Amino acid sequence: MATTLPAPIEFSLPDGWLSAPPDEVGAPQAAFVALHPASAAGFTANITISGEVRADDATLAHLAEQAAARLRRDVGAVEVGRRNELESAYTQVLRLTAPVGGRPVELVQLQVFLAMADVRDEHRRAVLEIVLSATPAQFEDLVDDFQAFLKTVRPDEGASR
């Protein structure tokens, strides 16, 4: 069953991306999934959003390391590429081979971890994990879309609390 996000957010999908029910596309750990149908030759590039409320002092770098370790446990070898730490975000690029439709497919993931403080409790924060998954060729074509998407992600100030 699809999860919910720990904080309400709003965003805009770039042209060519369509939202999909997480359970129906095999991503029950995600709260949101967007697919890029035009890239579906063997693998459909996708963006997933998941998140959790954290009351500990784990750094975003540590959470990124945990995400890479989960992938290693689930699919095997994961190569960690460029990492970048910003004020309230952390990014990492991963290369892995995952089984897709019964065959191994080489994938690239750009994982972005965003922290949003809880305005009512300074000891808690929401951490969002936003991921672009694509083949290497798709990644080159779609990384600009993903970066444009990330610029639109923001707290939903109008959401009821």
Rank of each mutant, 00 (worst) to 15 (best):
M1C: 12
P6Y: 05
P6M: 02
I9H: 05
I9N: 02
D15C: 01
W17S: 05
L18F: 12
L18C: 08
A20T: 04
P22H: 07
V25K: 06
V25H: 08
G26H: 06
V33H: 07
V33Y: 07
A34G: 08
L35D: 03
L35W: 07
H36T: 00
P37A: 09
P37S: 07
A38L: 06
A38R: 13
A38V: 03
S39L: 06
A40R: 13
A40N: 15
G42Y: 08
T44H: 08
I47Y: 10
I47G: 12
I49K: 03
I49C: 08
E52K: 13
V53P: 06
A55F: 09
D56I: 03
D57L: 12
A58N: 07
A58D: 12
A58W: 06
L60Q: 10
L63G: 00
A64D: 10
A67V: 01
A68W: 04
A68T: 00
A68M: 04
A69Q: 11
R72P: 03
R72I: 01
R72D: 05
R72W: 05
R73A: 10
V75R: 12
G76R: 02
G76A: 02
A77Q: 09
V80A: 15
V80P: 12
V80G: 10
G81N: 05
E87D: 15
E87G: 11
Y90H: 14
Y90N: 02
Y90C: 03
Y90F: 15
T91A: 11
Q92S: 12
Q92N: 06
V93N: 12
L94D: 09
R95P: 06
R95D: 10
A98M: 04
A98V: 01
P99G: 01
V100I: 14
R103M: 02
P104D: 02
P104G: 04
V105C: 04
E106A: 15
L107A: 09
Q109G: 06
Q109S: 11
L110T: 12
L110A: 14
L110E: 15
L110H: 15
Q111F: 05
A115L: 00
A115E: 08
A117K: 10
V119Q: 15
R120G: 12
R120E: 14
D121R: 06
A126D: 06
L128G: 02
E129C: 10
E129K: 11
E129L: 10
I130P: 14
I130F: 14
L132T: 02
S133P: 10
A134S: 13
P136G: 07
Q138N: 15
Q138D: 15
E140Q: 14
L142G: 03
L142C: 02
V143P: 07
V143S: 08
V143T: 09
D144W: 04
F146Y: 10
Q147K: 14
A148P: 03
F149H: 03
T152H: 12
V153W: 09
P155L: 00
P155F: 02
D156M: 01
E157R: 15
A159T: 01
A159C: 06
A159P: 11
